[in-house]
Amino acid sequence: MSIGVLVVDDSGFFRQQVKTIINADPRLRVVGEASNGREAVEKTLSLQPDVITMDYEMPLMDGISSVREIMTQQPTPILMFSSLTIEGARITLDALDAGAVDFLPKSYERISGGHSSLKQILVAKLLTLAGPRAAPNLPSPSAGQRTTSYAQDFELVLIGASTGGPVALQKVLTQLPVNFPCPILIIQHLPGTFTASFAERLNAQCAIHVQQAVDGQDLAPGSAYLAPGGMQMMLSGKNRLRILAGDARLNYKPSVDLTFGSAVKYYGNRTLAIVLTGMGADGREGARLLKQGNSVVWAQEASTCVIDGMPSAITKANLADEVIPLLSIAQRMVEVVRYGG
């Protein structure tokens, strides 16, 4: 059975272009369309689509308000179309906080110009978001958790994430105390215009200090450093960051694999790496290198992920020392890092 999609946008032209892409794939079908946020809520309730594409700027009710209504009345995976501006970043992050699952840059030129890459990405995201992990069911903090004691003292925490990561990172980092004893490096797949706004938002919400990483800066305890979108973040020495353009052949900028792998030389077995929700397998090979150096790797428990691709890649490769529900990760970090296991 094909996946039903509701297309929401106040531009008739944009709706038509999205509908054409969706209906060209036999696995997908457009079940309805809406030109404003209020109509989107009504049609979600009446048509019960499997997934929704959503614009932000619309009459009667904007996209964020519509997302909140939908997630309250008929929770459904929602893919936002977003502008790649600083204001667009803030709006998109608000939409993710409201319950949207993922986003795509909104470009009239690309969607009307026959860009096959955009079509492939849109189809792939819709198929993935309509899957069983698209609306996570968060269990109680103790559910399904196997804990381990570790002999080493940890000096660095690494966290990698992709789809669903902004909300997951918020849930983890806001629970850490101001005196958390290690620096934290965060690798989240986001466009370059988004990461500064995301770092500012996290910093306002957290007791620890959060900032976008800067080339050459020294790391400090109780601080988290977010890799700039479109760049790579590596360690060039103990407690020293390097931000660079990186190899064009790498699929992700920033790459979880690259940051994870760079920690092995300088921290040995004193690294704790955590792989959160995300599409694909970025982080698996970096985790493999960390394990060869006797570091510790955790994976987010699948049922608490928006998309469990990245954590499952870790567990299937037998690289996870612990598989932890999202709401338990911060507590375990404090237990293990502060007290050395």
Rank of each mutant, 00 (worst) to 15 (best):
A287T: 11
Y150T: 06
N36S: 12
R29K: 13
E322I: 05
A98M: 10
V51I: 12
L173D: 07
Q292L: 15
T148L: 13
E69I: 07
I243L: 10
C206P: 02
Q232I: 15
F13D: 12
V123K: 02
T20Y: 03
D257T: 07
K291I: 11
T92K: 11
Q232M: 14
T174V: 15
A134Q: 11
M54P: 00
Y225Q: 07
S11N: 10
A313W: 01
Q73V: 09
G114T: 12
K291Q: 14
A168V: 01
I52Y: 03
E109W: 04
G229A: 06
Q300A: 03
V172P: 07
R201D: 01
A299E: 02
Y267I: 03
W298E: 05
P105T: 04
R249C: 14
E69T: 05
G222T: 03
R270H: 15
V334E: 14
P228G: 09
N239H: 10
T44H: 11
S149T: 15
A220Q: 15
K125C: 10
Q120R: 08
L289Q: 15
T76E: 03
G278A: 05
Y252L: 12
V101K: 03
V41Y: 11
L219E: 08
I91H: 08
N239I: 01
S262N: 03
T148C: 13
S255Q: 06
Q120A: 06
S107H: 05
N294P: 00
G237K: 04
A281G: 02
V178A: 14
S2M: 12
L327E: 08
D94S: 12
T193G: 09
M1I: 13
L28A: 00
G114R: 07
K238H: 09
A124K: 12
N203D: 08
Q175V: 10
T76I: 03
P132V: 06
G63C: 12
Q211Y: 00
S197E: 14
S328K: 15
G293A: 14
S312G: 09
D215R: 04
N137W: 05
L138M: 09
L173E: 08
G32H: 01
E57L: 13
D94R: 14
L226R: 01
L258A: 15
S223C: 15
T271S: 11
S303M: 11
S312R: 15
S223W: 05
Y150R: 06
L276Q: 01
T53Q: 07
I329C: 10
A24K: 08
S328H: 14
A34E: 02
T148E: 14
A135Q: 12
W298N: 04
Y56I: 14
R38E: 14
A227R: 04
D153K: 13
T271I: 08
T315A: 00
Y267Q: 04
G165A: 08
K19R: 06
P183H: 04
P221I: 02
P105Q: 06
N179M: 12
A199V: 02
Q211I: 06
